[in-house]
Design a protein around this nucleic acid. Structure first.
Lengths: 201, 201
DNA sequence: GATAATATTATACTATAGTCACTGACTAGA
DNA sequence: TCTAGTCAGTGACTATAGTATAATATTATC
């Protein structure tokens, strides 16, 4: 951080950006995303519309940015994950903590995040970038579990990670459709249970 | 069908509706959903905007309606599904045929369908209605498989159906994000494989 | 067949996300 | 310290989904 010299301009820019971000989230939380116009945000933040779009490509970028903070959170998960003896347990903990975090963000926020990723104006979605800590971590956990003989070795670890993440995403998508009416963590627990043990008698 | 008397008006209305529907889909396919305005559709179909909104709540209703035609398709699947001896095979066939149908609809269409379901203006999404043939059928197949000892019996069949559908939805969601760049049926095959047999060695 | 009721259509309008050309303050190099 | 160039900031403008209202065509009733 702070690699380049901090000129007045840059400080001002960061402040303005932050003010827009905070104001927007505050309004979204109070009135709901779709009941808040960009003009509302600008007025409250005391800036012009042009400035808003100077810092954010679109209204939903605010939500995306908030949503993707989960990627920092993965670091904090590590101690709890590594505290588990079994690698299978580690994977389960990873899934549980991820869903817990998403659950805490609240269905409205996550819904907008998932919604905007499908928007016609978006060409490639950041949430499926393989560079995300989410993928890195899931793959590593799967690989370690395989190396220790706790998971079958005939499927590449990347594919296992992919499959688990996709399945979790299906739950999240549906959780959004139901506006958070069911327990996300519980549903996740069950899914992972089935993924691991299968449905055979 | 055709329960009420077909007055001139009603015939006219149906024709108009169909013309709007066909024209819209044709334009969407040619230029892409977001490159086509409602006014374009109206102009091409030779009707006014008011007429469009008389028949369709919103622009994306066209896509939803097209997408939900899959619910009719489940009937046609039955022979192929029932031709399988094993109930597990039937479930797999069901999943495969569903994904095949969706794959054939094309990523752009499905993307809009999934997108619009998350729109802030929608309160309850039709695609997660438990009344849908999709759910009915998945539950029945799971139940029959259980009754014949081909699936574990400690999970209610509804839950199994739910889990499988959610997981499939996760794949579809991601397929949309990737604009159909991977093979949906193949990914589905693999997922069902894992769901059924699990990830244990 | 005149007329009231209603279904259908046309158009002007509203709301709001996002764009663009411009301004003037700030920075950096001489 | 002067000056060229950059960048934060502005607000009028555009595009387009959706609405409200007025007009017209069709049917039902007498």
């Amino acid at each position: 951080m702070a690699k380049t010299k901090m000129t007045k301009r840059k400080i001002q820019a960061l402040n303005t950006r932050q003010k827009i971000f905070d104001t927007a989230l505050q309004l979204f939380n109070k009135k709901g995303y779709d009941r808040v116009t960009v003009d509302d945000v600008c007025k409250k933040a005391g800036i012009s519309k042009g400035t808003f779009y100077n810092y954010f490509k679109s209204k939903d970028q605010i939500i995306i940015e908030e949503f993707l903070k989960i990627d920092h959170y993965y670091q904090e998960m590590l101690p709890e994950i590594n505290s588990k003896e079994s690698y299978l347990e580690r994977m389960k903990t990873f899934a549980r903590l991820s869903l817990k975090y998403i659950s805490e963000q609240g269905a409205p926020t996550v819904r907008i995040a998932y919604y905007s990723q499908l928007s016609p104006s978006i060409k490639t979605s950041p949430i499926v970038s393989p560079k995300r800590p989410l993928y890195q971590m899931a793959e590593r956990l799967a690989r370690e579990a395989q190396e220790n003989g706790e998971l079958r070795g005939d499927i590449p670890s990347e594919e296992i990670a992919n499959t688990v993440i996709r399945a979790m995403r299906g739950i999240i998508y549906e959780w959004c459709l139901h506006n958070g009416k069911f327990d996300l963590e519980e549903a996740g627990e069950e899914l992972v249970q089935i993924l691991v043990h299968g449905l055979l008698p």
